[in-house]
Every structure is written in C-alpha cells, then in structure tokens.
Design a protein around this nucleic acid. Structure first.
Lengths: 135, 135
DNA sequence: TAGTGCTGGTCTCTTTTTGAGACCGACAAA
DNA sequence: TTTGTCGGTCTCAAAAAGAGACCAGCACTA
C-alpha cells in the first residue's frame, strides 16, 4: 500500500467536504457543525434535552455561564431552529426554552459523542498527563 | 405526566453531568466535549480521519486557517491523545500528523454528527432564514 | 410608603482568544 | 545570489467572551 495513489482523490474529497468551493455557507459540515462549537451550546442542549427550562433555571444549572452568554447562546440556538422560546404573560413574565423536533433530532446524534466522552474521559486525561510529563 | 415530580431528580442529574461539584476537570462532558468546541478541531479531525497529512498539506486543505491556529490546534489534539506527530529527518524536515486509536475511536462517535449535519443542513438554513425574516 | 426581591434581560468595560502577517534557519534548485 | 520549501514562532490588531452594573414591572413586607 503506497498511499500515494489515493492521495489526490482523498484530497479532493476532503476539500469538497471542508471548503466546498470556498463558500462556507454551502458546506454542511462547517455551517452546521461549527454551530456546536461554542463553549456553552452543548451544555444547554444537554440540559434542554432532559426537559424545558426557564431562563433563571438554566442560569442556576450552569453556574459559571454569564447572563450575557446565556442570552446570546439561547438566541443562537433558537435561530438555528434547535430551541423554541415561549413567553408566559405571568407576573413577572416567565420565558421557557425547549427543544424543537430538529433540536431533538440533532441531540440524538450528539448523544453518541456524550456517551463516548463518558467512556473515554480517563483515557483523554491520561494522554494529557503523559504529554505534559514529556515536556 | 406532570413533569414537576421528576423536576428535582432531573435537575440533580443534569447538574451532576454538567458541573460535577464545581470541578470542571471531573466532568467528562465539559472536559472532553469542550475539546471539540474549537472552530478548527473538527475540520482537522475530518481531514486526518481520511489519511495522515503533513503540516503544509493541512494548511492547503483548510485554506482559511492561520498557520498559528493550525500549529496550536494540532498541538492540542496531540495533547489530548487524538493525534500522533511524527518528524521525518529529511531535508527540509517533514512532520506527519495521523490519528491515534483514541482519535479514530472518537471520530467514530463524531461521525454521527457529521452525517446528521449533511442530512439536515437545509433544515437549519431554513430555520435561520425564517428566524431572520421574523425580525 | 419605602424597601426588597423576582423576572429576563441589556449595556459597558476588561480580559481572553483568534486572526493576519512578518520573521526564522537550514537546505535545494535556478 | 536570489528564490523557494519546510514547519514553525513572534508580535500586534481584532474579535469574542466574561464580570458586573443597571433596567422596568410587579408582589410582598416592614
């Protein structure tokens, strides 16, 4: 197996998957996956996958998120169609956030990664410790 | 199903999963998943999942990554045990990056998300367009 | 009646992260 | 002798994220 022969073909394939002609919006991976990239999005998706929560509840659930980032991240998730925002005209008014069907569908795939993380947490930590020791 | 009864239990579960006593390093999700959060890590993992690449090849493959971020992201992936870095003492010296077993294992789970992204790219784009139009 | 608290935010300021691009040494080819 | 390749590092500007003050409207309390 030389590897050189399939080199060009693979490069073209991965280039299509990654760049798609230089237009990022046309690339599913970059356009959608990078939506998960934010520091807080995955955590909020996990929380909302369990049940709907209100703004203040989420804030207490993720203690080290700033109010500003919570607002903004929920707004982004809503814009991408993963989260539904509903205002209840109580006094004081309450706002409930819940997953949409699209959000639940996405979380199904994302869940695989969560399971992997739980299973392999130790392996990653060991790799880090070994790497740092080698420095 | 009232939902109120399991409220407390769920809160405790999600709190354990997210915060784990306030120590982020003990929480698999935050410790491992946030490793995928970076803007470039998923792209480089995708590239390296196809075949090993050298530094310059990766730079050409992902045209809009800066050299600095490529260096740093590869370093981080190596530290977490996903990527192996091998130096060939040629002239000029070449450096090849490849996935480790741990990296391939992680990519298996991550792959689900890639497939989802390809399938649902249009739905996300439509959600965004609808949201922006409603503003 | 004045004070306090809860709601879901916005606004400003500082710190951290990222991006753009110059620079590096060793060697090869022109 | 200039130019190019290799895999980076270094510096500085721009963007993103974090900390925390502030807001209106209402309920309860002293």
């Amino acid at each position: 197996m030389d590897g050189k022969v399939i080199n060009l073909k693979s490069k073209m394939e991965i280039y299509k998957a990654i760049s798609d002609g230089g237009n990022i919006a046309n690339c599913p991976v970059r356009d959608v996956i990078q939506g998960f990239s934010g520091k807080w999005r995955s955590l909020l998706m996990m929380a909302l996958a369990e049940q709907p929560y209100r703004f203040g509840e989420l804030r207490r659930l993720v203690p080290d998120i700033s109010q500003r980032m919570l607002t903004q991240t929920l707004h982004d998730l809503q814009r991408d169609g993963y989260v539904h925002r509903e205002v209840f005209p109580t006094k004081p008014p309450g706002v409930e956030y819940s997953l949409t069907d699209l959000g639940r569908s996405m979380f199904g795939a994302f869940h695989q990664l969560i399971l992997w993380a739980e299973l392999n947490h130790d392996a990653v930590r060991e790799a880090r410790a070994a790497f740092d020791a080698a420095q």
